[in-house]
């Protein structure tokens, strides 16, 4: 009967939908189950497994949402490094609690190199803000890949022509300058606080969400913004806002005319670094293999161009240097967070 046939079609369709939904989720979390038996617990077996690493897809956890700056860089790294390693690296976004959600997940995975994390300063801020009860020592660094400075920008028709004039005004009129950042305790907020520390200026910090600091700056509701370059790049190119200075060691490739604070005589360097880490206890040979793949990523022309377009500088640090660097950054950020009353531990 026709009715039965229709029913059959409908059932089949429903089944197809479910399978589609399942496979989509499956793609996202593929390769989560570590292959039992392939890896032993003994040292010699560990070494043997490491030489054959990777024999199955690697999963990279990203702490921020799909389409965010962190996510796009991570996906590019995963694409290039995956080709080099001979196994795909799948990117899964585990967002929330300032990064703690993703860190907690990766910490709970086997230390075999198949669960890697797109690490950043969030490891320091999420711990000190009290979002998680473990700190950067829970992970071993693989390599640092990029840094992004923070940019201090004003509207194109603002009276301050350079950063020194701006700081001078803020010193004379404490709290008069309202500076928009991406949220209290966010990296852009900490950078603005660090600028206060180094110069003695005083701002009113206004926390915003995605895109809103820039639109408030354009609308004249605030006087300045503290943002990552990628978030304000198109307004700069259109001549609507002017970046007074960036907090990097060196100028940004995409904005060669914008000076660094150091050049302007203000001793402020603070950059948002990004790199790869794995749970501590991952075998040395696995770390070495991943490290080599990441080094190749930073030398890749396609990645260089991609990073520049995203407003990031390429800054490579190997596993050992990376760990030392994170430890040093941890102290610096901890003291800044203490100052704004956000250090809980």
């Amino acid at each position: 009967m026709g009715n039965w046939r229709l029913k059959g079609i409908a059932l089949g369709l429903a089944a197809l939908l479910v399978m589609l939904a399942l496979s989509l989720v499956g793609c996202g979390s593929g390769g989560k189950q570590p292959g039992e038996g392939a890896q032993g617990s003994g040292d010699s077996q560990g070494n043997k497994a490491a030489v054959e690493f990777p024999t199955k897809p690697v999963e990279m956890t990203v702490l921020f949402g799909a389409g965010s700056g962190a996510d796009l860089l991570a996906r590019k790294v995963a694409e290039i490094a995956g080709k080099d390693l001979g196994q795909p690296i799948s990117v899964v976004n585990r967002t929330g609690a300032g990064g703690a959600t993703g860190y907690t997940y990766v910490k709970g995975q086997k230390a075999d190199g198949y669960a890697i994390i797109w690490n950043s300063n969030s490891i320091n801020t999420a711990y000190h803000a009290g979002n998680m009860n473990f700190d950067y020592k829970t992970f071993s660094g693989i390599a640092e890949l990029t840094t992004e400075p923070v940019s201090i920008a004003v509207k194109a028709d603002a009276p301050w022509k350079d950063i020194n004039e701006f700081v001078e005004y803020a010193k004379k009129n404490p709290g008069k300058i309202r500076i928009g950042n991406s949220g209290k305790g966010s990296f852009t907020h900490l950078a603005a606080v660090a600028l206060e520390n180094k110069t003695g200026a005083k701002f009113t910090h206004v926390p915003f969400g995605q895109g809103l600091a820039v639109s408030s700056l354009l609308g004249g509701q605030i006087e300045a913004s503290s943002q990552l370059p990628a978030e304000i790049m198109s307004q700069v190119k259109a001549g609507q806002v002017r970046i007074l200075a960036v907090t990097g060691e060196q100028r940004l490739k995409t904005l060669p005319d914008v000076p660094t604070f150091k050049e302007k005589g203000i001793d402020l360097t603070l950059s948002l670094w990004r790199g790869i880490a794995v749970p501590a206890g991952t075998p040395e040979p696995v770390i070495n293999k991943l490290e080599a793949a990441m080094k190749k990523v930073t030398e890749n022309d396609e990645f260089k161009k991609f990073a520049a377009d995203m407003g990031a500088n390429i800054e490579y640090r190997g596993a050992k240097d990376f760990d030392k660097f994170i430890a040093q950054q941890d102290q610096e950020l901890a003291s800044l967070m203490e100052q704004i009353g956000m250090k809980k531990q």
Binding site: A66, S68, Q210, G211
Partner: peptide, 26 residues
């Protein structure tokens, strides 16, 4: 204006930047 007000618009913005297109008045 080149300003994203929603997450999916932000992806579109990133896509434009990566393709060498500056969103906004230009």
């Amino acid at each position: 204006l080149g300003i994203p007000f929603a997450p999916s618009i932000a992806v579109l913005l990133s896509g434009m930047l990566l393709m060498g297109v500056t969103p906004g008045p230009l």
